Simulated scan of single mutants.
Amino acid sequence: MPSIPESFHSPLRIVRAGAKVLLAGLLLLTLTSGVVLAASSNGNGNQNTPKTITLQLAPTSRSATQGTSASYNVVVQPSGGFVGNVSLSISGLPAGANASFSPTVVAVGPGSASATLDVSTTSATPLGTYSLSLKGTSGTLQSAVVVVSLTVTAGQHQPFTISGDLSGLLAPGTAIPINLQLTNPGNSSLNVTGLTVAVTGVTRTAQAVANNRPCNPSDYSVTQFSGIYPISAPPGNSSLSGNAIPSSRWPQIRMLDTSLNQDGCKGATLQLSYSGTGQGN
């Protein structure tokens, strides 16, 4: 019997394999082509934290009377792993004021570091409230500007004083010049104008009183200062002679020559008053 060939048909086996890929510590990126890429991740990403410095001041406002000072505490705070020396600077100071940092250069890192800012004023510093701008610099790195305020108020200034004494005894018809002494308790020079001298009282001798011999301020005349104004009064003590003013320009006290004051005013002691105006430079 003839053999009849048989046709064998192998069934097409289609296998769909699905795999789940778990990669610990890897970020999976799946593209449309089915390719799987892995990118490393460190929890902070690939971005590095920039190095910075920040200034913090306390208090943020202070007041000082003219001629005194105010202090602030400056804290330099680093971040991003900054380590280095930071120089501090300030701007916006009023006229006559000065600032100093201690230390002048702050060593920072890995933690914060601090410095003290002292702002000193003078008696001539204008009154008012001022905004002071501070910043820190380390090479090309700068902090943000921090603003604090300083209020300058009027202080309790002692007035300058004027004094003087007669250099001898007066006699009828004679005059004696007075070398005025100027005392300036401040820390800056004064320009003095408007000097005046007046006889405010007379103390007679015991003999004149016993003999009832009169003597009054009207028995004297005053020739006022005739030099050039202003007169410089530096801090401390000064005088007309110290300003190279000739005695002919000094104030003078003269006893009048009358028959009534011949005995009553002989040897008398005068009480003098002085006035003038001093203005700071």
Rank of each mutant, 00 (worst) to 15 (best):
Thr203Ile: 11
Ala39Leu: 13
Leu27Ser: 08
Ser10Asp: 12
Pro217Asn: 06
Pro251Leu: 15
Ile14Ser: 10
Leu256Trp: 00
Gln156Ile: 02
Ser114Val: 02
Val75Glu: 15
Arg213Ala: 10
Ala39Lys: 06
Ala244Ser: 11
Ser69Ala: 15
Leu23Ile: 05
Ser238Pro: 00
Asn212Phe: 06
Asp263Ala: 13
Ser7Met: 04
Ile245Trp: 02
Val86Met: 07
Cys265Ala: 09
Thr223Arg: 07
Leu37Asp: 04
Ala64Thr: 06
Leu270Asp: 12
Gly43Phe: 05
Ser112Cys: 02
Phe160Trp: 09
Leu141Cys: 01
Gly111Asn: 12
Val35Tyr: 03
Ile178Tyr: 09
Gly67Val: 09
Asn44His: 04
Val83Ala: 12
Asp219Tyr: 06
Leu256Ser: 08
Pro2Gln: 07
Gln271Tyr: 01
Ser241Asn: 11
Ile231Asn: 11
Gly236Gln: 11
Val76Asp: 12
Pro185Tyr: 11
Gly280His: 04
Asn98Gln: 12
Gly173Leu: 10
Val209Tyr: 01
Thr153Tyr: 01
Asn191Thr: 01
Ala175Thr: 04
Gly267Met: 09
Pro235Ser: 11
Tyr229Arg: 01
Tyr72Ser: 03
Pro246Gly: 07
Thr193Gly: 05
Pro217Val: 05
Pro110His: 08
Val146Phe: 01
Gly67Pro: 04
Ser63Gln: 14
Leu141Val: 02
Ser133Asn: 13
Thr122Tyr: 11
Ser112Pro: 05
Ile178Asp: 08
Arg254Trp: 02
Phe82Asp: 06
Tyr220Glu: 07
Leu93Tyr: 03
Val199Arg: 00
Val197Glu: 09
Thr65Met: 13
Gly43Ser: 11
Thr140Cys: 03
Ala124Ile: 09
Ile14Asn: 10
Gly128Thr: 04
Val75Pro: 00
Val209Glu: 15
Gly164Tyr: 10
Met1Val: 03
Val202Tyr: 06
Gly227Phe: 08
Val199Asp: 03
Thr121Glu: 15
Leu240Asp: 09
Leu55Lys: 05
Thr129Ala: 14
Pro59Tyr: 13
Ile162Gly: 01
Pro110Trp: 10
Gln47Ile: 14
Ala113Arg: 01
Gln271Trp: 00
Ser114Leu: 08
Ala39Cys: 04
Thr121Arg: 08
Tyr274Ser: 02
Ala39Val: 11
Asn184Cys: 07
Leu28Ala: 11
Gln224Glu: 14
Ile162Leu: 15
Thr183Met: 07
Tyr72Val: 05
Pro246Leu: 08
Pro251Glu: 15
Ala64His: 05
Ala70Val: 03
Ser41Val: 08
